[in-house]
Design a protein around this nucleic acid. Sequence first.
RNA 1: GCCAGCGUGUCGGAAUGGCAGACGAGGUAGACUCAAAAUCUAUUGUGUUCACGCACGUAUGGGUUCAAGUCCCAUCGCUGGCACCA
Length: 802
Amino acid sequence: MKPYNFTEIEKKWQQIWEEEETFKVMEDHTKEKDYILIEFPYPSAQGLHVGHPRSYTALDIVARKRRREGRNVLFPIGFDSFGLPAENYAIKTKIHPQVVTEENIGHYTRQLKSIGFSFDWSRCVITSEPKYYKWTQWIFLQLLKHGLAYKHKMDINFCPSCKVGLANEEVVAGACERCGETVVRREKEQWMLRITNYAQRLIDDLDDVDYLDRIKAQQTHWIGRSQGATVFFPIVDTEEKLEIYTTRPDTIYGATYMVMAPEHPLIDEYKERIKNFDAVEDYRHEAKHKSDFERTQLVKEKTGVKLEGLVAFNPISEEEIPIYISDYVMMEYGSGAIMAVPAHDQRDYEFAQAFGENIRPVVSGGDLEKEAYTGEGEIINSPLINGLSVDDAIAKMIRILEERDLGKETVQYKLRDWIFSRQRFWGEPIPVVHCDACGIVPLPESELPLVLPEVESYEPTEDGSSPLAKITDWVQTTCPDCGGPAERETDTMPQWAGSCWYFLRYLDPDNDKEFASQENINYWMNVDWYNGGMEHTTLHLLYSRFWYKFLYDIGVVPTKEPYAKRTSHGFILGEDGQKMSKSRGNVVNPDDIVKNYGADTLRIYEMFIGDFEKAVTWSTNGVAGVKRFLDRVWKIQELVTSDSLDYSKDLEILIHQSIEKVGHDYENLKGNTAVAQLMTLVNAYYQKGSITRGDLEVLLLLLNPVAPHISEEIYEALGNERQISAVPWPSFDPAKTVEDQVELPVQVNGKVRFRLTLPRGLSKEEVEENLRETQGFKEYTEDKDVKKVIVVPDKLISIVVK
RNA sequence: GCCAGCGUGUCGGAAUGGCAGACGAGGUAGACUCAAAAUCUAUUGUGUUCACGCACGUAUGGGUUCAAGUCCCAUCGCUGGCACCA
């Protein structure tokens, strides 16, 4: 017999699948569909990571299995090809990001094909292609039209050396990730998307989808809904009212001072009245130049400045109370100001201690000598609500505030609007112009796509604008509305834009009239199963749900949620248990595994390595073990001594069990135990020494989703005309998954003492009758009192004696 | 600090409340070989016994149960996420 030449076999089958378009999906809308989606990769210069095939294989298995169950399966692939690395590379080398991106996509494509995924390559989408991003721009224009995109001045992280705005992820320990320069805050006008309008729906609709609980929990937490009250505190001797948000209106009698964020606009408005404005300015300056990093590192020490000359009035306790500014209050949350209740909030407590402010308890309990008391208790020192519980007091105080027009019940979210512009080149141009006469004017749809112009250099400009700003003849244009001179927007969209809707483009990737035909959308949506990394839970996953809900609102998609089911895979760590990285030298290249062990070994190993959801450590020995398994599978061909398509009698039960278990495990991302079961089956075949053709074929049918090449090869060698990919998934007979006889362990006072073999299916009474006959029973109950006999039919017997 | 999850042999890991350690790796012994690799066979939680066996054993301490790795309470440790969010 020929040796197992995986290189040859894998090349052969990959070629067949490509030529025969085996996995091309048909728009046959009469069939039941399954839309199975993996997160499309960013085509990095490093090439595929061994982490990629883990989730791709798991879902490829599901796709391959479900096709064989007669479903119309869409399992597409594409590339999320806009992004920073290609641009940074371009700055260094002057090579157009497009060129690098194309090369990388070519590399990824070859790698992915070498692993034998059953993607429908004919539907490949690439987000940096104009025919794709035309529709990303189109969606942006719809958002703009519906008031969900707006420009807003705000502080961003800015690297003075690179002259570029940085995303939070690009700031490491307060410094620029690329050059190490200390990052400062700089005010810039940014495009924003009103994701906050959808906050409540993004929480509520999680009830209707099947996501892992931890994904739901993380999203809910990220959106961060809280319920409380807005209260207005008048500022003495002015018409002004300071608006605050609190979740504890019950403690308002304990509000002995107020704190505003350093950026609060009221400060400038009343600077004439603030006697120590210099000190205030110094503090504000300091706070502004503290990076987010420093701000959070200095959590312990409370700092601030009292505003001399401005005094607030607590409208419930009717006292005048001082106002401070402090950077522990954030401008971005609530209204940028708080009522400080030092007795019942730990931060306020610390601040009050540092500044000698009055700590007045209004809820009984705790020890205010040590810390603030945040628990339940009876309201005290609060004439209007004394004696109530916290919950009742909150409700009553909100009523009082509303009656007296001093405030109202309010819901707050931590979620902020999405900063949607980047001062970068390699992204979708934002398709609007700035016209002196008309303001911001969207491009008409007919002018889409607005394509990226050629630029000389990819460096940002002096003032931190996108390199597009330097292309004068591109920037200078005419206003689509008035025909007068206008300038194009030079910001581009963030990396996340293209991935917000790519799953819709797969449905109809070449359509140049619509982003996808309504017919196809109606047939394929929702995505039945979407798998991706946990790191995308609060960004990509949330953003794309937001866009999809918007598309639903404007009537172009039929469902409220894009993804019916979401699962997540764990990371693969290097052999040393550390994250794989070049500098650690622990990177495993999937190409090497394919070359030295074969794609099937890689695929099986990635499944066998451990619990799909957990982080796992790469093991070269483990890979070798899987290869040994496939060698054994290959050599099973020599064990076939009968051409019968029936299963061997003494293997029948194990085979039926395996069909059940392997199918179940594949569907539940338990590739590890599915593979273990296949190993058990193979071991049993060897144990028996001679098997039928039917025995081998059923093994191949089960093995095929995880190891498609070797299984097709052996199946063909057995003389089958059809490929396994066209053979229905095998079925099992539940009656044949169990033995006629069962061996029941007999526990005496919780310990297994002996066993009893009985026919399956006996009633409790029958089992007990049989039990009482046994030598063991007599032995263990001799001169003892049998308290209880518990029979779990076909499982176990438990005897309690005294 | 908060949220989610985890803790099982030498290692990766299995176990709808019902025989803990499936499957794999590694180790040990043997077969084949001049030898090695590969392959095959046996063995492999700890203690104790010549042995059948017996006792112990799923981070720690307690509890519920005829029965707990699994459920409950507390503690310790680890991982991921969030974090001066009022």
